[in-house]
Amino acid sequence: MSKKVLVVDDSATVRQQVRLALAQSGFDVVEAVDGVDGQDKISSTPDIKMVICDVNMPRMNGIDMIEAVHATGRHAGLPIVMLTTEGQPALIQRAKAAGAKGWIVKPFKADLLVAAVQKLTA
């Protein structure tokens, strides 16, 4: 059975790029359009194995989403990798402190993303 990965990004282009990259390696991709939607999808889809998440999004940004998700305790072990245009060290440190497992600055390299997902969902 395919492992389920949630991609949270307000850009349909990025969500589709991630979907194409991961689907070729046998992953099942669920999409969310912002942090609020991402939080809802995590709550309503218990078999999600990993999250790939943008930072700058409407309604709720990605780091606030991680903090909210991990604060519940139910998903404390869910691996989350940030995929963003941001490269600011202060934001990277904040994401790390919130429990993110990695950081990629867009545009992503498909092979590296797939390798990261394979490693974190193994």
Binding site: V81, G87, Q88, P89, I92, K96, A100, K101, G102, W103, I104, V105, K106, P107, F108, K109, L112, L113, A115, A116
Partner: peptide, 12 residues
């Protein structure tokens, strides 16, 4: 060198 390069993966 503060900012991360595009496409690179930084694991925590």
């Amino acid at each position: 060198d503060l900012s991360q390069s595009e496409g690179d993966l930084l694991f925590f």
